[in-house]
């Protein structure tokens, strides 16, 4: 039986050829995937495993790089690169910096 991600041959409508420019955060997700796999932290198969296990709803409700960062994160947790507690603390810290990406991604001033 084929799983949801194996879309070959399914009925589908017209191809939407609209293109968006990749945002910085998307390029960073892409870079993290390439760097972490080149360092041996996980493989492209590991990336795919988590993406496929997300199921069809994630394909419809999350953007491409949203699914990728979720998978990169899951793989890094499994690799022991950091803990769930460390991630939660860091995300809380990031969210406190500001309500938009540019502010939240800016390095914190120590002064």
């Amino acid at each position: 039986m084929k799983r949801w991600h194996d879309m070959g041959g399914d009925e589908a409508g017209t191809i939407d050829i609209a293109q968006h420019d990749f945002a910085l955060w998307e390029k960073r997700v892409d870079a993290l995937m390439v760097l972490c796999s080149s360092k041996g932290l996980f493989t492209v198969d590991g990336l795919r495993r988590v993406l496929e296990d997300m199921g069809p709803d994630a394909f419809e409700t999350m953007s491409y790089y949203e699914r990728w960062i979720a998978s990169v994160n899951q793989n890094l947790l499994e690799a022991g690169s950091y803990s769930v507690a460390e991630l939660a603390a860091k995300m809380e810290q990031v969210a406190r910096r500001g309500a938009d990406y540019a502010t939240a991604a800016a390095p914190e001033r120590t002064s």
Partner: peptide, 30 residues
């Protein structure tokens, strides 16, 4: 590119910073 910070963008920033703090990669390498 400057919408409100989303949950997944927040995760990207957090993951990236953790990897830099742990010495896995550096900002310049990214």
């Amino acid at each position: 590119n400057d919408g409100a910070l989303s949950y997944w963008q927040c995760m990207e920033i957090a993951v990236r910073e953790l990897l830099v703090e742990k010495g896995v990669t550096t900002s310049s390498e990214i």
